[in-house]
Design a protein around this nucleic acid. Structure first.
Lengths: 134, 134
DNA sequence: CTAGTTGCAAAATATTTGCAAAACC
DNA sequence: GGTTTTGCAAATATTTTGCAACTAG
C-alpha cells in the first residue's frame, strides 16, 4: 500500500479500495475482476471509476497494463521488470522473474530506439492439464 | 500463396482475396485493416467473413494472432517462430528473428507445461522519434 | 473553495453470432 | 446436392466519454 501513497492522487475511498485490492495481488485481474470484487463494498462503484483509476495509476507508473490476454486488458501491480507465463486454456497468468539478455540483432532494429521488452511464455497449467486428461 | 492452398478450406473469392492480402504482408494488419483494404474490390465483404476466415486460418496454423496492440488483435501470416518490436507511439510492428534461449527457472514454472514463448520489444520508431523532436 | 473525482448513461470500438441466401466442390 | 460460407444485422464485450453532482485536500 505504501508504494501507492502520495504519487499525487486524491485518495478517495474508491481509490483506496482499488489500491488495496491490487496491492500484492498476483492474479493479474481485469477491470471487471476489480469492479466485481469491489462492488460488494461499494455498491455504487462504476466502471468509469475503475478504468479511470487504473489509467491514472498506469500513467504514474503505479501498475502495468498487460496485453497478453486476447480478450481483455489485465493489470499488474508489480512494476518491477518481470515476465509472464499464461495458460492458454484458462488464461491464468503467473510471474516469471528470470533474468534474460535480449539483444536485438543490429540488422533488425529498423532504426527503433529500444525502451523495453517483455516475454510471454505460453503453457498449460497443472489444473488444465489434469482436466484435459479426464 | 501456395502455403495456404489446400489446408482444407473452400476457396471462395473473398477468402482468396484475404489470403492474397495476407501473403507476405509484414504490416501485422488488424481485422479492420484487412476489411478496409478488400472493400474496394469486394464492396459486399463483411466483417463476419473477415473474422471468420482469420479464425479458420488461425485454427489451421495459417496465421498467428498477435495480442501486442492493446487496442485490437493483429494478424501475422508469418507462422515461423519469431518475435516483435512495437512502436509505443504509432503501434507499428516489425519482425525480430533473433534466436533467444529462454529457459524458465525451475522454481517459477508453477507446474506448467511450457509450449512456447514470444518476446515483445517496445521502442520508438524512427518516424515517431523525428516527429517527437519537431 | 476548487480542482479533481465519481457515477450514470450513452457512445465508441472490437468482436461474435443467428440465420437465410448463396456458392464451392 | 450437400455442406460450408457469405452477408447482414443484431448482440455481446470491452473501454471511453460527457457532464452534473460530489468531495478530498
Amino acid at each position: 500500500m505504501e508504494k501507492y501513497k502520495d504519487i499525487g492522487l486524491k485518495l478517495t475511498p474508491q481509490r483506496l479500495a482499488i489500491l488495496n485490492y491490487l496491492d500484492g495481488n498476483k492474479e493479474h485481474p481485469s477491470a471487471e475482476d476489480i469492479y466485481r470484487a469491489l462492488l460488494k463494498r461499494f455498491p455504487t462503484m462504476s466502471f468509469a471509476t475503475v478504468y479511470n483509476t487504473l489509467e491514472t495509476l498506469r500513467q504514474r507508473g503505479g501498475l502495468i497494463e498487460l496485453t497478453i490476454d486476447p480478450d481483455k486488458k489485465r493489470f499488474d501491480p508489480n512494476t518491477e521488470p518481470h515476465h509472464h507465463l499464461i495458460c492458454v486454456k484458462c488464461k491464468r497468468i503467473v510471474d516469471i522473474h528470470g533474468d534474460y539478455k535480449l539483444p536485438i540483432p543490429n540488422g533488425e532494429r529498423a532504426g527503433f530506439e529500444i525502451i523495453g521488452n517483455h516475454i510471454e511464455f505460453y503453457g498449460i497449467c497443472p489444473k488444465c492439464k489434469k482436466a484435459n486428461s479426464l
